[in-house]
């Protein structure tokens, strides 16, 4: 894969197990450069685990993961850190550094990786905070922020080094409708204005459909369906219909596998 390949992330034949449990089996995914790509799937299908492969925090049992010209599964630690400078990541809970205020959180990557003068750091940080609408909150501590604000600060921190790829892990989880709308708009705007590629892991079908150019639905370690959100919503397979329309039962059962209900209840009386 060349440095400026059409695909920013290319996963080929990814296999991975944890103990006896198979997480991925021959997973193939290609994410186009410049797109917002959504990774969807029921809880526990390994969406966040997939992000760990993309960022080099996990090594597959088999298969390869290419990210922006790096073969992540074969890149040594130093190379991984170089690669990560080109990636911004928004964690589910924001993962802001609790010792620092909003300004210092956003300034953190600049202070660690550059020798910019303080005045320039000040300008860059305030510009990024302005982009997420939180310039006025620069002195606040992470504990004073709401969930939505914390995620926006984390977004400002993720873009402060001008990355080529932005990764969002469940960016809509636990947000009120207003914050959710703000985050949806920001994802799209950041992608288009900064000319970057975005990967969004989520199971909020409505929000993700509004923002994604293409989507992958993962289930049982494989890609169950892929395409634009429109294509997915018209997909005829039972699993895709269940997921896209939020049906309680279907190929993904409501009940976790369990022994017979009656015998389990009566069995307790015998104990």
């Amino acid at each position: 894969m060349s440095e400026r390949s059409e695909y920013v992330v290319e996963i080929q034949g990814l296999c991975f197990s944890r103990g006896q449990r198979r997480i991925f089996q021959d997973l193939d995914i290609k994410m186009r450069r410049g797109d917002v790509t959504a990774i969807m799937g029921p809880s526990g299908t390994g969406k966040t685990t997939l992000l760990r492969f993309i960022t080099g925090q996990l090594v597959p049992d088999r298969g390869s993961v290419w990210v922006n010209g790096y073969q992540v599964d074969r890149t040594p630690r130093k190379g991984l850190y170089e690669m990560r400078r080109e990636i911004g990541m928004l964690f589910q809970n924001g993962a802001l550094l609790s010792d620092y205020n909003v300004f210092e959180n956003v300034a953190f990557p600049l202070r660690e990786h550059t020798n910019l003068p303080e005045r320039l750091i000040h300008h860059v940080v305030l510009t990024k905070l302005h982009a997420v609408g939180l310039r006025g909150a620069w002195q606040m501590s992470p504990t004073e922020l709401s969930g939505g604000m914390a995620r926006r600060v984390a977004l400002a921190r993720a873009i402060v080094m001008d990355p080529e790829i932005l990764i969002y892990d469940e960016p809509f989880a636990g947000l009120d409708p207003i914050s959710m709308g703000v985050v949806v708009r920001l994802i799209r705007q950041m992608n288009d204005v900064l000319g970057i590629s975005s990967i969004v892991v989520s199971h909020d079908v409505g929000e993700i459909s509004a923002v994604a150019d293409s989507s992958y639905l993962i289930s049982e370690g494989k890609v169950a369906a892929s395409g634009t959100p429109d294509e997915l919503s018209k997909d005829g397979s039972a699993l895709v219909r269940q997921f896209m329309h939020g049906m309680a039962d279907g190929p993904v059962p409501f009940h976790y596998p369990a022994p017979d209900y009656g015998s389990q209840l009566l069995g307790r009386d015998d104990e």
Partner: peptide
């Protein structure tokens, strides 16, 4: 993890 992702 966030630090690792910021290449720190």
């Amino acid at each position: 993890s966030a630090m690792e992702m910021m290449a720190v």
